[in-house]
Write a protein that binds this DNA or RNA. Structure first.
Length: 235
DNA sequence: GACCAGGCACATC
DNA sequence: GATGTGCATGGT
């Protein structure tokens, strides 16, 4: 993973957070009106730009389908037509239906009932739903259910491996430990931190991995390899 | 026209 | 276990 002492890693992680916060300010994630909307957005944004997801969510709202009951009753074909702008619409329509099947089977279609269950059990359940992987499950836990879970995405891996804090070969399950074992276990901190990482990741110059505008560049030694180019597939 | 975006499941080796 | 591929629209 890395060779720094634990206390040093914690200080470095907080330093990075402070720099990002100073650069970008509070991100106030997740951009949604209800926990259910967060859950739907988490599925729709899989490998998709958020602006396209916004259009899809607006379509669902306009058709009064952004409630568990309405979406549960809607046909996959109807849903696919409305979420078309988010891409992978047939696939995502099926994934939404699978998630709603789970929500109704376990929680009577009421997301607030999920709050009664332990985080580890909820994560296990979410991962068992076809179409919900680690990042989507953790996004739901953190942003919809306010659990202190650190969300890792391709940006996190790219940026923190660049700065030598994780290994580029670390699995998804290894990376959150860097944060949860070295930072205070606070939902609000994890919420902002991940949102700030995404904000930075979007801005980094794709064609110039050593982007001099990156607010973290002074953390890097000259021996660090350049940020690897983004590759499809993630983990 | 090429590349990328707040992944995931499945097939193949 | 690791790697490759399909899923797909819309912005740059």
């Amino acid at each position: 993973m890395n060779i720094c002492k634990k206390s040093d890693i914690g200080k470095t992680l907080l330093d990075i957070y402070d720099r990002l916060y100073a650069e970008f300010g509070p991100r106030c994630w997740w951009p949604a009106e209800t926990p259910f909307e967060v859950m739907i957005g988490a599925i729709l944004t899989q490998n998709t730009a958020w602006r396209n997801v916004e259009t899809a969510i607006e379509n669902l709202k306009r058709n009064n389908l952004l409630s568990p009951e309405a979406l549960f009753k809607a046909s996959p074909g109807k849903i696919a037509g409305l979420i078309l702008p988010s891409g992978y619409y047939n696939l995502k329509a099926k994934r939404l239906k699978k998630f709603l099947d789970y929500l109704f089977e376990k929680y009577d279609g009421q997301p607030e009932k999920m709050l009664r269950k332990r985080t580890s059990k909820l994560r296990e359940e979410l991962l068992s739903v076809n179409g919900i992987g680690p990042e989507t499950a953790d996004s739901i836990l953190l942003y919809a259910l306010n659990r202190p879970v650190f969300v890792v995405d391709a940006y996190t891996k790219r940026i923190f491996s660049r700065h030598g804090l994780i290994d580029a070969n670390d699995s998804y399950e290894q990376i959150p430990a860097l944060f949860t074992e070295n930072l205070p276990k606070r939902t609000k901190l994890y919420n902002e931190y991940h949102a700030l990482i995404v904000c930075l990741g979007k801005l980094l110059c794709k064609k110039n991995p050593d982007c001099p505008h990156c607010p973290l560049m002074s953390l890097s030694s000259t021996t660090n390899p350049p940020i690897p180019p983004f590759t499809k597939g993630g983990f």
